[in-house]
């Protein structure tokens, strides 16, 4: 009996040690940071001295006027007509008209493949982020294949203007040009829409592309993030 008692008491020691350790761990990990934040916030939260001279009604009126003015200025920054927002991480788009989403869906953007040709030449297939404008609109666009299209196929690069660079019927029924060779266009590989597989252009499903083409005029803004 005495042996059992001794055994129980000895086995309590590591438990107590564990509890002591846990208690200090909790204080150090959770409690001290909370105390730090509370003190920091409290000092910076000293209440302002009550100003008895202020005319609340007049002050509120003045603030409302400023607020109205600023709100209008901020609202004016968002395009009032149609614009397109493209999310390159989720490969989705939202088409806006009069500040309302009129269509949304999947698209495909740059694959982030860095194609290395040699130590001096490489291509980065990335859709640039920022704001672009629709520079032009085309129906039945024809693709003029750039150098990388041959290089990634292991083919010799033909001279500029060579007939082998011209490829019709691969960009869908419509294309919107954004400058620097970037376009919003259709694709033969519709099942890949929603994945980052392009060389930098934005690919869309046929119906979405038609809606975007018909909604966005030349000069419309394309926001890419």
């Amino acid at each position: 009996m005495a042996k059992v008692k001794k055994y129980i008491i000895w086995s309590l020691f590591p438990i107590v040690l564990g509890l002591v350790f846990l208690m200090f761990a909790y204080i150090n990990v959770m409690v001290i940071p909370e105390i730090q934040f509370t003190k920091y916030q409290k000092v910076l939260s000293i209440k302002a001295i009550s100003d008895t001279t202020i005319n609340v009604g007049a002050e509120l009126k003045k603030l409302d006027k400023t607020l109205n003015l600023l709100s209008k200025r901020v609202d004016r920054l968002t395009p009032g007509d149609a614009f397109l927002v493209i999310n390159t991480t989720n490969n989705t788009f939202e088409l806006y008209k009069n500040n309302k989403i009129i269509r949304q869906g999947l698209c495909s953007t740059g694959s982030f493949i860095h194609l290395e040709v040699d130590s001096t030449k490489s291509f980065m297939f990335e859709t640039p982020k920022g704001v672009m404008t629709v520079k032009g609109k085309k129906t039945n666009p024809v693709w003029t294949k750039p150098d990388w299209a041959f290089i990634e196929e292991g083919l010799p690069v033909p001279p500029m203007g060579h007939a082998s660079r011209i490829e019709p019927n691969v960009l869908g029924d419509y294309a919107l040009t954004l400058g620097d060779g970037y376009m919003i266009h259709g694709t033969l590989y519709q099942r890949l829409i929603g994945s980052p597989v392009t060389h930098g252009c934005v690919r869309m499903l046929d119906d979405d592309l038609e809606a975007v083409y018909k909604t966005l005029p030349v000069g419309a803004k394309i926001f890419i993030y």
């Binding site: 290395e116 290089i151 990634e152 196929e153 292991g154 083919l155």
Partner: peptide
């Protein structure tokens, strides 16, 4: 930030 994948350009059609 950018999920870049480096790919070596094929030297000919068989390497594609």
């Amino acid at each position: 930030k950018k999920p870049i994948r480096k790919v070596q350009a094929p030297k000919n059609e068989n390497e594609v």
